[in-house]
């Protein structure tokens, strides 16, 4: 056999062996990986409403139990009604998580999905039942530059959002924005409730995240308004 033929046979054999090996490993481990991702998602929903702490470790069972007890997924229609299921009259509804304690809604959690510098940024933003105060914010996935935009996954940045308001004094929707630098230095006093400290070296990430938050929150405004006016009706059942 010529050298060329030998090389080709060797390469083909190697490809088959490696492909089989990797496929087996990926398929065998997939259920566990998906379970991990699901737990991580639930944990982040809980983190957004401050039901778990970032400093503590939890078992998968604890997370699942807490999640099943306190969090329910509903849909929000364009008029701001809360419904079950993900479609009403063939119109898709916005997913909304409700944190329910003793039969009353404590907060609602909005999934955030927005463009970042290198890829999508996903996370959850929880808003108190007054419809205007941010209760918490978490980032579940991003592909920002490590050390720069990647700092959005840091605790200080996410805790930054707590207590901020998405409406101004007159009740107009303004969303929450990431400031360029520190809020105390960069933002006039009356606007400070709507700004969080930015990350140096990550101006673009901050801008994209701000725009994304505004877009998402704007879509949820009908339901936020109902929360503000205390006109929330739970779906029957």
């Amino acid at each position: 056999m010529s050298d060329m033929a030998k090389s080709i046979v060797f390469a083909v054999c190697m490809c088959i062996v490696l492909a089989l090996l990797l496929t087996t490993a990926a398929t065998a481990l997939q259920p566990r990986q998906q379970q991990n991702m699901e737990i991580n998602r639930k944990k982040n929903v809980l983190l957004a409403v401050d039901l778990v702490s970032r400093d503590q470790r939890y078992t998968a069972e604890e997370i699942t139990a807490l999640y099943n007890e306190k969090i329910v997924l509903f849909g929000a229609t364009q008029t701001g009604a809360i419904v079950e299921g993900d479609r009403v009259n063939d119109e898709p509804v916005l997913p909304i998580y409700l944190y329910i304690e003793n039969g009353t809604i404590q907060a609602y959690i909005v999934p955030i999905e927005t463009k970042g510098v290198w890829g999508m940024i996903s996370g959850y933003l929880a808003i108190e039942n007054d419809g205007s105060t941010v209760r918490g914010f978490t980032i579940t996935r991003h592909s920002e530059t490590p050390g720069l935009g990647g700092e959005i996954e840091r605790q200080w940045f996410q805790e930054n959002f707590e207590g901020k308001r998405i409406i101004d004094r007159h009740g107009t929707f303004v969303s929450v924005r990431v400031a360029r630098g520190e809020v105390e230095r960069q933002v006039p006093e009356e606007d400070r409730p709507h700004y969080v400290d930015g990350i140096s070296g990550a101006t673009l990430t901050g801008k994209l995240l701000s725009d994304g938050l505004k877009q998402v929150l704007y879509r949820y405004e009908p339901i936020s308004i109902r929360f503000r006016d205390n006109r929330i009706e739970m779906p029957a059942g």
Binding site: S7, F10, A11, L22, A25, A26, L29, R32, Q33, N36
Partner: peptide, 25 residues
């Protein structure tokens, strides 16, 4: 004549195995 690509193939497969394992456990 194909040794480098064979070496890379082996290394890459082991790395992917490690990554999958870490993500699962």
């Amino acid at each position: 004549n194909i040794r480098i690509i064979v070496e890379l193939g082996v290394i890459a497969s082991l790395v992917i195995l490690t990554d999958e394992f870490l993500r699962a456990y």
